[in-house]
Every structure is written in structure tokens, then in C-alpha cells.
Design a binder for these strands. Structure first.
Lengths: 240, 240, 240, 240
DNA sequence: CATGAATGAGTTTTCATTCAT
DNA sequence: AATGAATGAAAACTCATTCAT
């Protein structure tokens, strides 16, 4: 939705502006982000910004889309070559986890900006067509259903709930890894790709996938019969 | 952190103010929330507010604490009587899920306000002493470790990762249930306790717990040996 | 429509502000009048103005009403004592002329402000309830009808048209007198009452009234019969 | 005062621009009229406009002149053929009334634009060389004097005052007719020539001229002696 | 202790105008 | 001659906060 004026801008100038704009809107909530401050930092005239974008909201919506693009691109390159053909749902999950973490570490500003989008005023949120939590959930749900068809996933699982659980697990992974790496989520600086040490990340992904696959319960206690019996009993109103 | 002036206020007046203040800060982001609008709605003098609270930030921090209190109280009463003594970790999880959902449905404003707290400017977030995501995580971690000690949870699980996974699952439950109930997350109106139909909620909780306990993989495929073998193999660049 | 804040202002401050505000809106058209300039001149904070009035339009509408009040008051005092009881329509006209001229000379700013009101954006004009050209016209029409009833005015006159003619004559008198006095309509300074020299004004009024009463046609040519015959003939496409 | 660039424009383009420019400046006061809006609507480059005109003021002054030209042209054609050679002053008045009304109905935008010219900031008004109220007055005055010479008008009339009265009557005729026709002065659409129904207009003009000629006073009361005697008496402080 | 007017820096946005292409 | 991006001053208006009453 930016005007053509913006799109015709020299790539360098446009890129520079985008970095600063993303920062402004990642560091402040929507109302708190200041056009005045932004243009001052970017060294462009206030009037110019309004020749690039219709208004503050237009700018914000574009920045969100832009950030999504940046992250997606990162996912695309990150995924390339890592796994052979298509892989099952667990491979997909690992891929997503990897992408999520990569995004959180390498593009923290963009990631935070997108977070903001979810909390922005309802009037704005409504215009974010690709309400991407929803999209992500639906995608995950499709994966689950497919995996149930191939027999990879237990057929008795509620697809909706399962998709939710998996999405929640993957989605929250960024902060976890940051903590593990001893980093502050606030840091503006992108973690360079080579610091995304597989030796650190892979075990985390393994652990998560292990839980996803087999659950948390102690192994021997998982006899078929006991499992069935205990299903609701264990957790429900102490009835047992 | 409110001044004593506020605490000495007639309970009625104080309560009324809190409702409106929570609404203002739940409906708008921190910068967008307006003291002027709030006092106008609440019908109190602007000067009075500044005799109750030091400044906008002080008010906000207090509202967050207040909202947490409201939700906790709800959890307390919700938990009462449902489960006997303490219960295992799965019982605890069910309890937390129940509480989370209850909070999201019965106190949507407060829930949204707390969400905002996480997205507020860094300067403010730093002052939220009980950075409650952290708290929740630590609490969950303690639960996990304890459960491993009692043998309820598999001992080979990484407590940190497990705690994260569980916290993420529980935390994201609110929206899921809202969707299931066909409700809009924006709705101001608290869903009355009696609409929290157990017949709807319990199956959801069951589904989640089933996954948590046993994982998502199809049962027969879970032979011990295969599981071990496939652990990293399946999802990891096939290299091994 | 000003807020009570404005009405509670010390009379002195309020009066001073009104003078400057009237000037700003008399010297500039609505869009050109500047709130910033006004508050700077008046030495009040910009925020204060917005505690007096809701917005620019609110201020303007109030100023128009205020100006009308000033002029009306002037009319009231000007009329006092000049004519005995009520008088016929011609007395009324003389009174109105006197009032109009007095207003134009003694309160030029207010008069110009009101002129502006007629030319302001339609959205604003619609809110000027007492669209006073209309009011004046209706008043005049009533006068005419009454005078026809008493036999003072010729019964064959179209009241509508007559009212229009009389209103136009009276309304345009201000500039005429200004010119006669050798004054510039732009002058901000109010002409003091004692410069409204009756020796200058009365002959003008007399002349006008003479025309109103008897018309412009040369006397001897006004034989009853000729008059009737010539009525349309003279002025209409030479048909005769 | 437009630059030659403008005059060299293809007639079609120029005409189209003028229509839109007149509309912009007729619908908004001078300060409120927007060059940006105008060029956007007209589909010309902003830079181009500044190659046609020196600045906003230059454009405005030209538009006023242009509008006057349009109206005059209309008068010229309207007058054609209606009256034989020259006619007396009353014929002239009728002609002027007809022209005025025609202008108001057929070129409302241009008429409104000219109205604005009178209310524009002093700095601009000063540059409107043909301050046409003045012009009209002087023209009318010449007419009056001439008519007095030919004996058509009473010789004792003050030419200045008479000219004023006549100009005021003619000038205000537009709105009167609009009202009579049940039209809104705001309407952009020009009333087509054939809706200027003579059957409606002529009686109005007749009524006006009747007043102008013979005055408003009831006939029998107009004996020569009484008239002289009452001249000042009637209208002046009831002294008689 | 309550009040609410005063404040001026702050906001987003539009403006007329310039000038390099 | 035409273009339209760049400009920054200026616009109307809101803000959190203070303070005299």
C-alpha cells in the first residue's frame, strides 16, 4: 500500500528507511511510535513520508507485511537443502522450529514488529488480511490431518487441538532459545547466521520433538490398558 | 504503588474506577491509552488521579498487578474443590488449563491488559517485577522436576524444554477455547461462569493432556527400539 | 457553545480574548484564520483555547453569535429615545438604517465577521441557526404586510419583493456611509459615537427614504393614468 | 496574469482546468482552496500549474477575472435583442436585473467565486483592479445623472444615494429569484437558459421597477404638498 | 483532599512552492 | 514544456502533568 513514490525510491535509501521505520515501530507500540522521530532519524522531510505512505496506519501495515516478507524469505533460505524431499510432519515441525528460531534471532526487530501487529488497535488489526496466526494454525491443521491420513499421527487425535498444541510449541520457541543462548530479547542486533550453532539448537529441537512424539509420561507406565484407564481419571477431579 | 489516597477511597468508587481504567488500558496500547479520556469517563478530576498515582506509568503498573490479582483469585476459586489434595503434574496442568481458560473468558479485559504488559515499552516492562511469563516458566519447571522425581515424568526429559513446552501449551489455550465457543476475543463482556460448560471444555483438556502424556505419534509405531532409532534420524537431515 | 471554562474566565481576560479572536476571524477567512496565531497574540496557551472551545468551528460559531450580540446591543441603545412610540414602517426603516450604519462604523470588526459567516463553508453555515439574512428578510416582510394593513404602504405591492428591496437598501448602507465619510472599510478602529454626525447621516437617510416613499421617477410625469399605462411598458422590451 | 504557457494550452485542456479551478475556489474560501486538491482533480502536474501561474494568488486573481468575463458575456448575449436601441434608465435597470439573475442562475460557480473575491484577504482584494462593486456603483451613478439630465429621474435626487439604492436592489436580486424558484444557492448545476421562465421573472422585475419608480407609499397620501411637508417629518423622530 | 484550569511540547497531517529530470 | 518528488513551515488538536484554590 505504499505509493509508487516509495517504490521508485533508490534501493539504498528505501532500505535504510525501512530499517529505521521497522525499528521505530518495533521499539514502540503503535500509538507510541512517532512519525516525527522517525523522519528526523531517517533524515527525510516530514512531507516526503506522506508522499510515500497515505498515513501512519498505511505505513504500519506496510511495515508488517514487509517484516513478514523478510522472515519468510529467511525461512525459505533456511529450509533449503536441510532435508531431502518432503518429509513427514515431524520433519516439518523441525523445519518450522528452525525457521522460527532463526527468525527470532536473525531478525529480532521484524519479529517484534509482527508481535505488535497482534496487539495493535482492532481497527488496524482488521486490515491485516493475512492474520497470520490464523494462517499458521490452518496450515498446521492441514499438516496434522495429512499426517493422520498417512498414519504418521494417531488417528484419534483431535486435529484442531493438536494443531493448536503444535503451533503453540513452535511459536514460543524463540524466547526459549534466546534464554538458552543467554541473550536479551531486546537486543537490536541480529545474531549472525553462524552463531546459530546447530550444536546448541539441535538438542533443543530434539527434546521438543521427543515430547511431541511420545509425550511426557514415564515410559513403563504407558501400558495400553493403564493408559486407557487413566486417561481422564488421572487428571480429572481426583476421581479415582 | 498507588498512593494511600487511592487505597483510602470508598470501595465502590475505587472499584468503579478500576473497571474503567482496566478497560482504557486494555482497549488501547500504553501510549494510546489516555488519562484525559479515562478521567472524563470515570467522572473524577484529573488532579485526583495524580493524587492516587504518581503518573501514567505508575497507574499502568498497578493495573497490571490488579489484573493479575483478579485472575489469580479466579484461579483460586476455580480450583477449589475440584481436585482432592495436590495431585500429580497432569492434574496440575489440567487445573492450570482450566484456570487459564476461565480467566480468558471471565475476565477478558484483565487478560488483555496483561497481554499488553508484555508488549509495553521496555522501560515499563522492566519494572514489572513479577515478570510473570518468567514466573510461570519457573513454576512449571519446578513442577516438571518434581514430577520427574516422583517418577511421574520421564527422567530423560530436559526440564527446561519440557517446562517451556507445557507453558506454551497452557498459555495459548484461551484463544483456542474462544474459537471453539464461537466467540470473539474482542468482546468486552465477561462470559458468565455458567456458560463455561464443562461438557465443552473437558474434552478439550482431555485431548491436550492425551497429547502431553503420550505424544502424537501413532501408537503401534512406538516400539522402544524404533523410537530410539528414529529419534534424531527422522527429523534431522537424515544424517546419522 | 463555549465550555464553562470560558464563561468562568475573568471578564477582563475574556473580553481581551474576544477582541483578538474577532479580529483574527474578521481579518482572515475561516480557513485562513489561525488558532496558533490567535493564541500567540492573546498570550494564552494553545491548550487553554481548547479548554474554552471544542474546536476551531466551535470558536467561530461562538464569535459570530457574539458579534451579532454586540451589534444588536448597539442597535438597542442607538434606537433608544430617538423615536417616540412605535412609528410606521418608514420610521422603522430609518431606525434600521441608523442601526446598520452605526454597527458598520462602530463595530466594523464584528460587522465583517458576520459578513464572513455568510461565506463560510456550507458545513459551518448550516449550523448558524439564526441565519440572519433570512431572519432579517422575514422581519422586513412582516413589517411590510403590517404597513399594508394600516394603509401606510400601497396594497398592490408584492410583499416578498418589497421586503427584499427594502432589506437590500438598508443592508448596503454601511459601505455607502463609509465612503461618504471618506473612511476605509478596512479600518479596525471603531468610529466613536460622537463622530456619527447626524448632520451627515440624516440627509442620507432622508434621501433614501424619499426614494423608498416616492420612487425615483420625475414628479410631473406621474399622472395616475400614465403611471398605470406605463408600468410595464416603460421598462419592458420597448413594447408600447 | 497567467503566463503564456497557460494561454498556449489546448483550448480543451484549458477549459477543463478552468471549470475545476473555478469550482475549487468557489467551494472553498481562498485559504481553504487547495492547489494540491485542484491539480489532483484536474489531472495535471503540480509543477505545470506553477508554469501556468506565478502562485496561488495569481491563479485566484485570474479566476476572478475569468468569472467576470463569463458573466459579462452572458449579460451581453442575454441583453441582445431584448430592447431596441438604448432605452431609459428603467430599461437599463431591467436589463441589469435580468443579467444579474441570469448570471446567478446560469453560472452559479462563477457568481460565488466573485462573491468570494469581496471577502478575500485585503492583500488580495487590493489587487482586484476592477473592484467591481465600485465599478458598478460608478456606472449606476452615471446612469442616474444622465437620467436626471433627460428628465427621466427626479432632479432633486442625490445621485450618489440613488445609485447606491439602485445598485443594492439589483445586486441582491439573485438570491431572491433563487428562493422564488425554490432552488438552493449551493447547487452547482447551472440552471439551463430555458428554465429562466420569463413568466416567473418578469412579474418580479415589474414589481421591483414599480417600487423604484413610484415608491412604496400608498397612493392617495402622495399629494404634492403633503409629500413635501412630510418628507422628513414622517420618518424623523415622530416630530410633527 | 478534591478540583479543574493552565500549560506547551507533542502529535499527525497538509500546504504552497521549488527544482532536477 | 511537463513532471512529480522533495521540502519544511504551518496547521489543528491532544497529551500528561502541575498547581493554585
Amino acid at each position: 500500500m505504499p505509493k509508487t513514490t516509495f517504490l521508485n525510491l533508490p534501493a539504498k535509501k528505501r532500505a535504510r528507511f525501512l530499517v529505521l521505520a521497522v525499528r521505530e515501530f518495533a521499539d514502540n507500540d503503535y500509538a507510541g511510535a512517532s512519525i516525527s522521530r522517525l523522519v528526523a532519524q531517517a533524515g527525510i522531510a516530514k512531507g516526503s513520508l506522506y508522499q510515500y505512505f497515505a498515513d501512519k496506519q498505511d505505513l504500519f501495515l506496510y511495515l508488517v507485511e514487509h517484516a513478514q516478507g523478510v522472515l519468510l524469505e529467511d525461512v525459505a533460505t533456511a529450509g533449503t537443502g536441510s532435508i531431502g524431499p518432503i518429509g513427514g510432519i515431524l520433519d516439518q515441525l523441525r523445519l518450522q522450529m528452525s525457521a522460527t528460531v532463526s527468525a527470532a534471532l536473525r531478525h529480532p526487530q521484524e519479529a517484534r514488529l509482527i508481535q505488535r501487529a497482534y496487539q495493535s488497535p482492532a481497527s488496524i488489526r482488521r486490515k491485516l488480511e493475512r492474520h497470520d496466526a490464523r494462517v499458521r494454525h490452518d496450515h498446521m491443521r492441514a499438516l496434522v490431518v495429512a499426517a493422520q491420513t498417512t498414519g504418521e499421527l494417531a488417528p484419534d487425535l483431535d486435529p484442531e487441538v493438536t494443531a493448536h498444541v503444535l503451533a503453540a510449541i513452535v511459536g514460543g520457541l524463540g524466547p526459549l532459545v534466546l534464554t538458552r543462548l543467554g541473550l536479551d530479547a531486546e537486543r537490536d542486533t541480529s545474531v549472525p547466521a553462524d552463531r546459530l550453532d546447530p550444536a546448541v539448537l539441535e538438542p533443543i529441537f530434539d527434546s521438543v520433538l521427543r515430547i511431541v512424539r511420545e509425550g511426557v509420561a514415564t515410559f513403563p507406565g504407558r501400558g495400553t490398558s493403564r493408559r486407557r484407564a487413566s486417561r481422564r481419571g488421572t487428571a480429572q477431579r481426583g476421581a479415582e
